[in-house]
Amino acid sequence: MREGAIVSDTKGLIIVHTGNGKGKTTAALGMALRAWGQGLRVLIVQFIKGNWKYGELKAAEALGPNFVIRQMGEGFVKDAKGEAAADHQSAANEAFEMAKAEIISGNWNLIILDEINYAVKFGLVSVEDVIALLDQKPEQMHVVLTGRDARDEIIEKADLVTEMREIKHPYKKGIKAQKGIEF
């Protein structure tokens, strides 16, 4: 077994961060940083995010080959129609197939499927495919699924579920997204 490979005494968890509050991806990134600090190999597949230069991308580069973020999305999907919707669908299919190959590979200790719940909500990925994917993960691998509106089937499958609930948000006061906080 090569260095950084999955340790056999670990019980891989399925973890869900969901809810309408801010912090789902941020919590997953904190977990990823903790795992990396313990010598684990971390892969983050971003299903929706794409094209923006998020701060975590720069940080991941500095952490080296055991902390990888792959932006696979086309950005905001909520109101996409026509060709834009087809682009989102194609990107989600590509992200899902890549995530599946990486999960099956066993090369990672922790894989984060960032905003996959949102991809399911908008019909870009089926909940059945997500459940089947989770059934294929190696026993010791941890998988984190983030995004609003996690489906009941995913919540039922998970070992740990946290719901972030918005109480107050600066956007409602007209304060725009800020570098280092939202991106």
Rank of each mutant, 00 (worst) to 15 (best):
K173W: 03
A119P: 08
M164V: 01
Y118R: 13
E163C: 02
N109K: 07
D149F: 10
E163W: 11
E128Q: 10
I154R: 06
A99F: 09
M164G: 00
E139S: 05
A119D: 09
P138I: 09
L134M: 09
L110C: 09
K121N: 04
I155N: 11
K157N: 00
V144S: 05
L160P: 00
V125T: 01
D135A: 06
E102A: 04
D135C: 03
E102V: 06
I131W: 00
A99H: 11
H169W: 12
A119L: 12
D114V: 10
L113F: 14
E115P: 03
D114I: 12
D152T: 14
K121P: 00
I112A: 02
R165E: 06
V130Q: 05
G106K: 08
L110G: 05
T146C: 08
E163H: 13
N117W: 07
V120D: 05
T162I: 03
E139D: 08
I111E: 05
D129T: 09
V161W: 11
V144C: 10
W108E: 05
I155G: 09
A132V: 00
I175Q: 13
I103M: 11
N109T: 01
L145K: 11
V125A: 03
L124W: 07
K173E: 10
N117H: 03
G123Y: 02
L133D: 13
Q136A: 15
K121T: 12
H142W: 13
N109D: 10
I103G: 02
K168T: 06
K100R: 15
F122Q: 04
L145P: 01
S105F: 07
I154T: 13
D135E: 10
L124T: 05
L133Y: 08
